[in-house]
Amino acid sequence: MEQKKTAENLSARAAKTGPGKVAWWIGAGMILMAWALAEAWLIAPTERTMGIYQRIFYVHVPGAFTGFLAFFINFIASVIYLFRRSPRADAWAVASAEVGLAFLSINLITGPIWAKPVWGIWWTWDARLTLTLVLWVMYASYLLLRHLTPAGELQPRLAAALAVFFFFDTPIDYMAIRWWRTQHPQPVILGGPNAGMAPAMWVAFWAGWAAFLVWMVVLMRLRYRQARQRQRLDELRRAAALRAS
């Protein structure tokens, strides 16, 4: 009971916190976005074989990396929830899953736009494409489970269990799909000795990723606040229902 009371106070406080410092983050995001755009479109040198289309890389890959990072945060938050049953961990879990899905969607949309002129096809069931699609499907189904479970203590519990399952599934997926087929260009980051980018390309890549990371922080904070307010709303409703009965 005591614990419940503190949780209620905390959620009341979180629900009242205004956007505050988020405005600064949004400003930083805007500036980084403009810089990333200039780097990717104008400053970075044109790649030899893929030509101008390689510039899509600077939005495509940061989208994926940001999405993966958000999913990792989702796993950590879910494990913390399972041990501590803290509503705040659950709010981080839902925020990171949704934001991660948004960034992974960017990766999946920009991929075919690049693939059409370079490969001549929109989509192929190659290892990395398939794995990304599978991850997207997983976290979409995670959000669906949250959506379809009645509000209350059950929802975060089931969601956390599912998040742990999906996290452990990812490496197995990676192996299965890799054996299944591979067509994607080899990694240029942490790739073999000849795989590497020119320094100016690295700058464009880091600029793009930095912009996305800042936006990830902004979006996750906003979504986290929403999740906390939703928890507060559910609490108040339960209390009202108790009084009525």
Binding site: T46, R48, P185
Partner: peptide, 16 residues
Amino acid sequence: AAMWNTAPQSGAKGEE
């Protein structure tokens, strides 16, 4: 692996 971005060129190809 070595097919891309080892030696960047400036300027786009004609039809791109």
